[in-house]
């Protein structure tokens, strides 16, 4: 079964999707700029459009090169010291030998829950972050399973696409929120019909944009998790490790994690926020899927 997982197609597809996403978001930002300028003062459209284009280019460029750092920073993770987290380093180094990947930068995040995520734009510039809780509550094999799952995301370039989605979508959400909030302050003192139409479009955009992107993200995420699990088994040759870890996660992570923002949540192996649709497959289903996969 080892060779059934070939990363090449996945890598290519993730790279294309990332490119597409970056273009898409850049265009959405420019469009939003247009709508906003029309809604508020059409006289400044030209200036606002130029600003929007420059901003969207800068923003895309910045997110591409810094998405990993942003993700790590947003959850308040610290770089893991080698002397203190010896087991963590040992496990990752072993797995990078098994997978032929470069060693990612390792981070630790303050949280009693068992959780982990991977991020970055490519394997050479990747980061892996685990919670203190994961390091304390998981045994060596279970931790290895979780880390192998994250390395699976690294190997397939899931990290590039997923981090870009979370960082860029997070921004769309913020922009739309600001737009909506400013509507409250404007009140209804002007009754220009054209402005009202754009206002309506603006509101619709502001509501729809983040939902659409989140839906896209949810639609793709499930399969990614399965593949990452399969990669984890390929790297460790020991499915029980990951299964044990997932069981412990299912047992322990009942209370939602508060310090993780909604935008970053889907990056984690166990989604820290209970949402109306869960990004990761339910754990029982996951276990059975994995077992089936190992048996075949």
């Amino acid at each position: 079964m080892a060779d059934r997982i070939d990363f090449r197609d996945q890598i290519a597809s993730n790279k294309w999707k990332s490119l597409f996403l970056m273009f898409g978001v850049a265009i959405i930002i420019v469009l939003l700029g247009y709508v906003i300028s029309m809604a508020f003062d059409p006289g400044y459209t030209f200036v606002i459009m130029i600003i929007a284009i420059i901003f969207s280019l800068l923003y895309t460029w910045f997110s591409y090169y810094n998405s990993g750092k942003i993700a790590v920073w947003s959850v308040g993770a610290k770089e893991a010291e080698r002397s203190r987290y010896r087991d963590y380093y040992n496990a990752v180094e072993g797995l990078t030998i098994a997978s032929g990947l470069p060693i990612p930068k390792l981070y630790v995040m303050q949280s009693a829950q068992i959780n982990a995520f991977a991020s970055g734009r490519n394997p050479k510039n990747s980061v892996i972050c685990v919670t203190e809780g994961a390091l304390q509550k998981l045994d060596r094999k279970e931790l290895e399973g979780v880390l192998a799952h994250e390395l699976g995301h690294v190997a397939s370039y899931d990290i590039r696409f997923m981090t870009l989605v979370t960082v860029m979508v997070g921004m769309v959400a913020i922009i739309s929120e600001i737009f909506l909030r400013s509507l409250w302050f404007r009140g209804g003192n002007r009754d220009n019909k054209g402005s009202m139409i754009f206002l309506a479009i603006g509101i619709v955009l502001a509501i729809v944009a983040p939902i659409v992107v989140i839906l896209v993200q949810l639609a793709i995420s499930r399969k990614r998790e399965y593949t990452a699990d399969a990669s984890a088994v390929k790297f460790t040759r020991y499915p029980q490790g990951l299964i044990g870890a997932l069981k412990k996660i299912g047992h322990e992570n009942r209370v939602p994690e508060k310090q993780v923002s909604k935008a970053v949540a889907p990056l984690f192996i166990s989604a820290p926020i209970h949402e109306w649709i869960s990004t990761h497959p339910p754990l029982s289903e996951l276990n059975s899927f994995k077992l089936r996969r190992c048996l075949s």
């Binding site: 080892a2 072993g94 030998i97 098994a98 997978s99 032929g100 790297f235």
Partner: peptide
Amino acid sequence: DRVAYARQHYNDS
């Protein structure tokens, strides 16, 4: 562990 993983990677390669 590392030796085991290196052997595994060799076989995979």
